[in-house]
């Protein structure tokens, strides 16, 4: 008898629940016609370069697990390209970037296309010209960043000015010319001893 009563209460509760579901908010998203799609704050979308921060060291290209990031050195410019149809949005490029997130995964998810290689994000960086032989050897900004880092490490050194002078001198020549001109420019480290 008690069981029957419990059952009746349960059934009533169910009936109430079902009849009230109509008042709840609809689960279905009115996507193509309604408001723009919901994107979670941690969503990893199209990787984008920061023009000011990026120095063109291609660490992202070496770290890319799908080899989606490729670079070409031409006419004194280095062009880095992310082929987004290849990218798997793992975020390793953002993680490895020595600058503070010069490449960052944005919230852009709409990359639908009918040509595979047309969806890319690119950046162009100036290369430094060797003053002796005229070849382009390294991005300008990367040289600056290296010198800045050396300055940080040399805070209390007695030979600070001498070392910085040498680094500044050597930074204008490509690695081959640096070897050739080492004696002429007096770049060898034995003078510090």
């Amino acid at each position: 008898m008690i069981k029957m009563k419990e059952r009746r209460v349960g059934a009533l509760r169910k009936l109430l629940k079902v009849s009230l579901t109509g008042l709840k908010k609809c689960v279905t998203v009115d996507f193509p016609f309604g408001p723009p799609a919901f994107v979670a704050p941690i969503f990893r979308g199209q990787p984008e370069y920061d023009e000011e921060k990026c120095m063109g060291c291609v660490a992202c290209s070496m770290q890319c697990s799908a080899s989606a990031i490729k670079y070409v050195d031409e006419d004194g410019k280095r062009v880095l390209t992310v082929y987004l149809s290849r990218c798997i949005y793992c975020g390793r490029c953002q993680l490895i970037c020595p600058q503070d997130e010069a490449i960052k995964l944005s919230q852009n998810w709409n990359l639908v296309t009918d040509k595979v290689d047309s969806v890319v994000s690119t950046i162009t960086i100036d290369l430094r010209k060797c003053e002796n032989c005229g070849t382009y050897f390294m991005p300008d900004k990367q040289v600056g960043a290296i010198i800045d880092r050396i300055k940080e490490k040399l805070e209390d050194s007695a030979l600070k000015e001498q070392i910085l002078h040498d680094v500044e001198l050597a930074s204008h020549y490509c690695p081959d010319c640096r070897k050739k001109l080492a004696i002429k420019l007096n770049l060898h480290t034995r003078k510090y001893v």
Partner: peptide, 14 residues
């Protein structure tokens, strides 16, 4: 049509 993404959002598939 190509839908890039790994995996793409359901919105992108639509």
């Amino acid at each position: 049509v190509y839908v890039p993404g790994c995996p793409p959002k359901p919105e992108a598939i639509i």
